[in-house]
Amino acid sequence: MDLVRSVSDTGRALRDWLRIRDHGFAGGSDRDAFFSSLEARPILRWALQQRRASMDRDRALEILADAPDALKAEVEPDA
């Protein structure tokens, strides 16, 4: 529910997430655009709330490993 309230277009945000989750970033500029987007924080928070060993949660953890420190601090549950 937090995701729905946090993004303007939930369907688009989830489609973008599925593309990133399943195919990765097209390049550094694609990654940087995601990190700076308004959807990055809510979609990563949502993904981290999924069950352990889920594709969403695992991919979010991988992405956060390379994310800017400010994004990590806002998203990671143990930050």
Rank of each mutant, 00 (worst) to 15 (best):
W17D: 03
L18F: 11
S36R: 07
S36P: 01
H23W: 02
E62P: 00
I63S: 00
D32I: 10
Q49E: 15
H23G: 04
A33S: 12
D58I: 14
E39R: 06
S54M: 13
S37I: 08
A40I: 00
Q50T: 13
G11W: 05
Q50M: 13
A65H: 07
H23N: 14
E76M: 14
A40V: 01
A13I: 13
A26T: 13
W46F: 15
M55C: 07
E74T: 03
T10A: 14
Q49K: 09
L71C: 03
D69Y: 00
H23Q: 13
F34N: 00
P68V: 10
D16G: 10
F34S: 00
A53V: 15
R5P: 04
R15C: 06
R19W: 01
D22I: 05
L38H: 06
P68D: 08
G24S: 01
R31N: 08
A33Y: 00
A26E: 10
G24M: 04
F35Q: 12
R59I: 10
R12N: 10
R52K: 11
A53W: 11
R59T: 15
A70M: 05
A53D: 15
I20V: 12
F35A: 07
A53N: 10
R59K: 15
L3W: 07
A40F: 00
A79L: 05
D32C: 05
A26Y: 01
R59E: 11
Q50F: 03
K72C: 14
V7L: 04
G11S: 13
M55Y: 09
L3Y: 08
M1S: 14
Q49T: 08
D32Y: 00
G11M: 07
K72E: 02
F25V: 08
I63V: 13
A26Q: 11
L61D: 06
R45E: 15
R52H: 06
L64W: 03
M1H: 08
D32R: 11
R19L: 13
F25Y: 04
D9G: 06
P77V: 14
A13K: 09
L48H: 05
T10R: 09
W17R: 06
K72L: 03
